Amino acid sequence: MTTITACKPVTQKPLARWQQAAEGAYAGQISSDAKFSVVSSIHHGLSVWDLTKHERLYNWSQEQNTSDNLVLTIDISENASHVLTANRNNFALWNLQSGKSEGYWRVRESHIRDIAISNGGDYLLIGKSNATVVHVAVDTGRRLEFLGHKEKINSVDMLPNGRVAMSGGNDFTAYVWDTQSGQVVYQFNHSSRVSKVALDARGRYAFSADSMKAAYIWDLKTGKRISALQGTKRHEVFSTVRFSPDGKTMITGAATKKVSVWDIATGKRLAHWFVTPKEAKRPTGAVVYSVAFGDNKDLLTISSSGYVESWPMPKLP
């Protein structure tokens, strides 16, 4: 058996690569079934791709006429029925099957920092710069404001049924909370601002990471800490998180081109590699926007370089 160490990338080149944004992307997301991607870019606005055929399905527009209006965050529902997109000032709901818009909302005070969507597009979660997180029931228009944070929100997530949310902010705190009552279920404290939170779609785990280098996996049923990620560095800012279907590993992408596979039980990094940066005369970086598990034991990534790439899932010890 070959032992994989964290000091050397397990793979240098992707199995395949597809360009979806010629000049690079401002945001990107891959559906959990690895069949669709949504990309925000300067030339095409929002592009929706069928990853099985590598064809563009739709072009969507969300006020792409000024730099302030560029879509900077995207979320696809777990069942790939709907997409939520947002720029700094407004958010839009799209039907992924029909390609049609199902709603458009403007935020009047503060700016949008992060978003999440439930299955069916029934519930939307909006994290804002004024320390509030808004949970919206689309059918009834009911809005619940979570007021637990004291400073700017950096990251939000929500279970596919829309009943449990997670948020992290500049107040060094991550909260798991009930979206019907607004009551806190768990409070996870950090020693610096919380930069990323994530929930396992099957309701088993939660993840929170801060701006120094602490990153934790929590048991969502008990609130107890399962592990702390080992060997993280201060500049390793996590930009995306996906838990494996079998619940044994977690995949992260970072703002440093880095994709890592982690053992949930121990927090050990089992493997890592780097996505392809944009072609340029000088070396450039790339932010990993999204990762997903493909059908063929591979992993898909989308990054700010505008590429979707397929990678072999490493043999784990």
Results as ranks from 00 to 15, higher is better:
residue 269 R to V: 15
residue 286 A to V: 05
residue 109 E to A: 15
residue 167 S to F: 07
residue 156 V to W: 04
residue 313 M to D: 01
residue 283 P to D: 03
residue 106 R to M: 08
residue 17 R to Y: 08
residue 5 T to E: 11
residue 30 I to D: 08
residue 11 T to K: 11
residue 108 R to P: 03
residue 298 D to E: 08
residue 104 Y to N: 13
residue 245 P to Q: 12
residue 96 L to I: 08
residue 110 S to I: 02
residue 58 Y to R: 10
residue 214 A to F: 08
residue 268 K to A: 15
residue 263 D to R: 11
residue 175 Y to V: 12
residue 73 T to P: 00
residue 303 S to I: 04
residue 79 N to P: 00
residue 283 P to S: 03
residue 20 Q to I: 13
residue 29 Q to W: 12
residue 190 H to D: 13
residue 139 D to A: 12
residue 131 A to R: 15
residue 126 I to H: 02
residue 90 N to S: 12
residue 7 C to S: 08
residue 317 P to T: 15
residue 33 D to F: 05
residue 273 W to C: 01
residue 2 T to V: 10
residue 163 R to Q: 12
residue 282 R to G: 00
residue 118 S to V: 10
residue 10 V to D: 13
residue 235 H to M: 13
residue 223 G to A: 08
residue 220 L to R: 04
residue 108 R to V: 14
residue 27 A to E: 05
residue 201 A to Y: 09
residue 76 I to W: 04
residue 213 K to E: 14
residue 202 R to I: 05
residue 257 K to I: 02
residue 84 L to A: 00
residue 161 N to T: 14
residue 70 L to Q: 11
residue 85 T to G: 10
residue 220 L to T: 02
residue 154 N to T: 09
residue 238 F to G: 01
residue 118 S to P: 08
residue 274 F to Y: 10
residue 42 I to A: 13
residue 24 G to S: 05
residue 126 I to A: 04
residue 204 R to I: 05
residue 65 N to H: 15
residue 59 N to G: 14
residue 53 K to V: 13
residue 210 D to M: 07
residue 246 D to V: 05
residue 202 R to M: 09
residue 232 T to R: 11
residue 248 K to Y: 04
residue 311 W to Y: 05
residue 304 S to F: 03
residue 165 A to Q: 02
residue 222 T to A: 08
residue 151 E to W: 15
residue 69 N to S: 10
residue 248 K to T: 10
residue 220 L to Q: 08
residue 44 H to K: 12
residue 197 V to F: 02
residue 45 G to D: 10
residue 270 L to F: 04
residue 218 W to F: 06
residue 183 Q to M: 15
residue 117 I to T: 12
residue 238 F to Y: 06
residue 129 S to M: 01
residue 120 G to A: 13
residue 128 K to G: 01
residue 164 V to W: 02
residue 22 A to L: 07
residue 161 N to V: 07
residue 257 K to G: 01
residue 10 V to A: 10
residue 80 A to W: 04
residue 297 K to G: 07
residue 125 L to M: 11
residue 100 K to F: 15
residue 22 A to F: 09
residue 148 G to E: 06
residue 226 I to A: 00
residue 180 Q to F: 10
residue 193 R to D: 13
residue 80 A to K: 12
residue 306 G to H: 08
residue 70 L to N: 06
residue 300 L to I: 09
residue 133 V to I: 09
residue 174 A to F: 02
residue 78 E to H: 07
residue 273 W to L: 01
residue 35 K to S: 15
residue 241 V to I: 11
residue 173 T to W: 04
residue 2 T to L: 10
residue 273 W to T: 13
residue 114 D to H: 03
residue 46 L to Y: 04
residue 257 K to D: 04
residue 187 Q to S: 13
residue 97 Q to C: 08
residue 130 N to R: 15
residue 269 R to H: 06
residue 12 Q to A: 11
residue 259 V to A: 08
residue 226 I to G: 00
residue 137 A to D: 07
residue 54 H to K: 11
residue 294 G to F: 11
residue 7 C to N: 14
residue 179 T to C: 12
residue 199 L to G: 06
residue 139 D to L: 05
residue 160 P to L: 05
residue 33 D to Y: 07
residue 270 L to M: 12
residue 129 S to F: 01
residue 272 H to P: 00
residue 107 V to G: 03
residue 154 N to A: 09
residue 38 V to R: 00
residue 229 L to H: 04
residue 14 P to Q: 08
residue 124 L to R: 04
residue 289 Y to T: 13
residue 242 R to G: 04
residue 228 A to M: 09
residue 101 S to T: 10
residue 106 R to F: 14
residue 44 H to M: 14
residue 308 V to W: 01
residue 25 A to T: 01
residue 193 R to T: 15
residue 162 G to C: 14
residue 284 T to G: 12
residue 54 H to G: 01
